[in-house]
Design a protein around this nucleic acid. Structure first.
Lengths: 127, 127
DNA sequence: GTAGGGTGTGGACCATGGCCCACAGTCAAG
DNA sequence: CTTGACTGTGGGCCATGGTCCACACCCTAC
């Protein structure tokens, strides 16, 4: 493994982390800038290299799951901040999920409406 | 009507056109730059003012309908170009609509999948 | 002739989720 | 000691559908 020595409890540099989660360094940096991932620091000469551990892998996987559920990175970040502030109760989580559920249902309804109109047009043009 | 004299068969300046279709001058210019609307030209000193007629109003309405059906401005423009090239047969129109229908169905399926997962989570957290 | 409307052009900016590039420091192996 | 692979920073760019702004010109009414 390229640079992956010095495993202080599985800490790794960004490249290995990106490979581990099947993503890119740019994305990892992007998420880190947004506060979605927390990087440790390892001195490297006059500079610092970011290091990521298993927790961050879990976090990344969680983020991907949330994205698949339709949450934006913004929303995920805001939930993380609530979590850190200790205000993300089970009830609050449920509220968030139900709100998202409603917005998904709304989008489905809009798409279905478009589908209906479009189907009508196709059929009219077909006969 | 502010500037709306000199009606050469209902030609109007951009402001009146925008008001007529219930949109904004910026949007009208945007569509015009994209080639979705065709403006005539009226000399004004050293410059030219764009003029729009009834055909363009109809065009604008059509664009809005297409947007409501889920077509992007790009797609609409490309269809217009096919129309001008004379290649937009009824069959071709049907193809385009069916392709869009499929993409809408795909998006609905994705959203339903997210909805399903999310609902499962909400219920699990609810009990 | 001046104010107050209209207009065009060119550009920056918004959110979304990144990709890509250059430049420069770091580090290990040869 | 050089080569190659890695790293960070800072910036530009993509699509999408516009909004907003400044600056300059135009025209009409007073």
């Amino acid at each position: 493994m390229a640079h992956s020595q010095g495993d202080d409890a599985g800490e790794m540099l960004i490249g290995d982390f990106a490979r581990a989660v099947g993503s890119t360094k740019d994305t990892v940096r992007f998420y880190t800038r947004l506060g979605l991932l927390k990087a440790g620091e390892r001195a490297a000469g006059q500079r610092h290299y970011a290091v990521y551990d298993q927790d961050q892998i879990d976090r990344f996987v969680f983020i991907e799951q949330c994205k698949a559920l339709g949450f934006t990175l913004q929303e995920i970040g805001s939930a993380f901040r609530e979590h850190e502030a200790g205000t993300l109760t089970a009830l609050r989580q449920q509220e968030i999920m139900e709100a998202k559920l409603r917005s998904i249902e709304e989008r489905i309804a809009n798409l279905r409406e478009a589908e209906r109109k479009l189907r009508a047009k196709v059929e009219r043009s077909g006969e």
